[in-house]
């Protein structure tokens, strides 16, 4: 480490290796960056692959999952008898707790006009369990589905829910089109 150190074979090798490491690191990253496009990627659920197993509610690294249910209004039937909102055997078609499907009470039912009702998700209450998704998909139009909400998602390097997803519905999508919304026209 003294400056007068002679340029012997050992030092020469060392210098060579040093240069090689620097060049190697540079080129490896340069190449990988050059190959990938510069689009940032974020996690999202493909709603057509989702089986609403409930893992989204518990496997997220966040205490309150970043996955929430969303409503595709354009697909919704605005049913009075909403199978995503009401249990299969409702006592009455109303907002009574005994009739609601959602265990966290995150779906709001509002009267629009006869015979239509609007259903909206209160995301602060929703835990992403997907129970309503099942109800809506099995009986109804499937307008309720799960999505990663990017105001909450930490965009982990490996999404913990993705690793636990039985149908591999999680994928990385470009950050400029971060949602895979059902019923949204791509035109």
């Amino acid at each position: 480490m003294d400056k007068q150190e002679p340029m012997n074979r050992r030092n020469f090798l060392r210098e060579g290796l040093w240069g090689a490491c620097l060049a190697g690191a540079g080129t490896a990253v340069g190449l990988s960056v050059a190959r990938g496009n510069s689009d940032n990627m974020v996690w999202q659920i493909d709603p057509y692959k989702c089986i609403a197993c409930g893992n989204c509610a518990t496997y997220c690294v966040l205490e309150d999952s970043a996955v929430k249910c969303v409503q595709a209004y354009a697909m919704c039937g605005y049913c009075d008898l909403c199978t995503g909102y009401l249990i299969p055997e409702p006592k009455a078609l109303d907002t009574g707790a005994e009739n609601e499907l959602c265990p966290t009470g995150a779906i709001k039912r509002t009267y629009v006009e006869d015979p239509y009702y609007e259903y909206t998700i209160d995301e602060s209450l929703c835990n992403g369990c997907g129970k309503c998704v099942k109800g809506c998909t099995v009986f109804g139009n499937g307008s309720l589905f799960l999505q990663v909400r990017h105001d909450r998602c930490k965009n982990c390097n490996e999404c913990a829910i993705a690793a636990a997803c039985p149908s591999q519905a999680f994928k990385r999508v470009p950050a400029d089109r971060p949602y895979l919304l059902k019923g949204a026209d791509n035109k």
């Binding site: 309150d64 707790a97 005994e98 209450l125």
Partner: peptide, 23 residues
């Protein structure tokens, strides 16, 4: 019926409270 509604409300309140508390 009223028991169901009360319990339901309790569970929901509890859940939010616990999340907030943990935070």
């Amino acid at each position: 019926l009223s028991e169901v509604r009360q319990l339901d409300l309790k569970i929901r309140r509890d859940r939010i409270w616990r999340l907030d508390f943990a935070h």
